[in-house]
C-alpha cells in the first residue's frame, strides 16, 4: 500500500514534470516563464492544504486529546511551512523575470508570507515549550488560530493595496487556456499526492518517535 502510494506519486510527479516542461506550449505573453506556474501554484495549493490539515488535526487534538491527531497536526504544520516557503521562493523566481521585481506587495504573496511566519511560530512553540504535552497543546492552538486569521489578513491586504493605489499587478490577469489548464491540474493533483504521502510518512515518524 505504501509502496503503491509512493510509486503512484512519483509517476504523477513525472507526468506533471513532463507536461510542465515539454507538454505545454509557451505562453503568448510570458513565454517560457509560464512553466514556473506549474510548480508555484501547486505548491501554494499544497501549502493551504497542509494548513487546513494542521487546523483540523489541531482542533481535533485540542478536543479529543488523542496523540494521533497531534502526529497529523505536526506533519501538517511542518509541511505548511515547507510548501509556503517553496511558494514564496518560486513566486520570487517567477516575479523577477516577469514583473521585473523579486517581490510585489500582492495580497497573495503577503498572505503566504504571513502563513509561513505563523507556521514557523507554530513549530517553534512546540519545540521550545517547557514540556512536550504543553508543546502539543500550544502548537495545536497556534495552528487553529493561524488558519482562522489568514483569511482576514488576506482580505485586509487586498483592500489595503487595491483601494488605495489602483489594482496592482496580479496573477489573475493570466487567462488560462485549456493547454495550460491540463498541466496545471495534473501538477496540482501530483503535488497534493506528494503532500499526502509526506503527511502520512511524517505522521508515522512522529508516532514511532512518540511511542518511545
Amino acid at each position: 500500500m505504501r509502496a503503491f502510494a509512493v510509486g503512484g506519486t512519483a509517476a504523477l510527479l513525472s507526468v506533471g514534470l513532463f507536461l510542465a516542461l515539454w507538454g505545454s506550449p509557451p505562453d503568448a505573453y510570458q513565454g517560457e516563464y509560464v512553466r514556473i506556474m506549474y510548480v508555484h501554484v501547486p505548491a501554494a495549493v499544497s501549502a493551504y492544504g497542509a494548513a487546513a490539515v494542521a487546523f483540523g488535526a489541531g482542533a481535533l487534538y485540542l478536543w479529543r486529546r488523542d496523540r494521533r491527531w497531534d502526529f497529523v497536526g505536526r506533519a501538517g504544520a511542518e509541511l505548511a511551512a515547507l510548501f509556503s516557503g517553496l511558494t514564496l521562493l518560486t513566486g520570487m523566481l517567477w516575479g523577477k523575470p516577469v514583473w521585473g521585481v523579486w517581490w510585489a506587495w500582492d495580497a497573495r504573496l503577503v498572505t503566504t508570507a504571513v502563513l509561513f511566519l505563523l507556521y514557523v511560530g507554530c513549530l517553534l512553540v512546540r519545540d521550545l515549550a517547557d514540556d512536550p504535552e504543553r508543546g502539543r497543546r500550544l502548537s495545536a492552538a497556534v495552528a487553529v488560530l493561524a488558519f482562522l486569521d489568514v483569511p482576514v489578513v488576506h482580505y485586509s491586504v487586498v483592500w489595503f493595496r487595491t483601494l488605495h493605489q489602483g489594482p496592482s499587478i496580479s496573477l489573475q490577469g493570466v487567462k488560462l487556456a485549456p493547454e495550460f489548464l491540463l498541466p496545471l491540474a495534473v501538477n496540482a493533483v501530483a503535488y497534493l499526492a506528494l503532500l499526502s504521502v509526506l503527511l502520512a510518512e511524517r505522521a508515522r515518524l512522529a508516532s514511532l518517535e512518540g511511542e518511545r
Binding site: L89, L93, K96
Partner: peptide, 14 residues
C-alpha cells in the same frame, strides 16, 4: 534558466 532554477529549488527543498 529561470524555469529550471525554480524547478531545481523545488526539487532541492522537497
Amino acid at each position: 534558466a529561470w524555469v529550471l532554477t525554480a524547478y531545481g529549488c523545488a526539487a532541492l527543498l522537497v
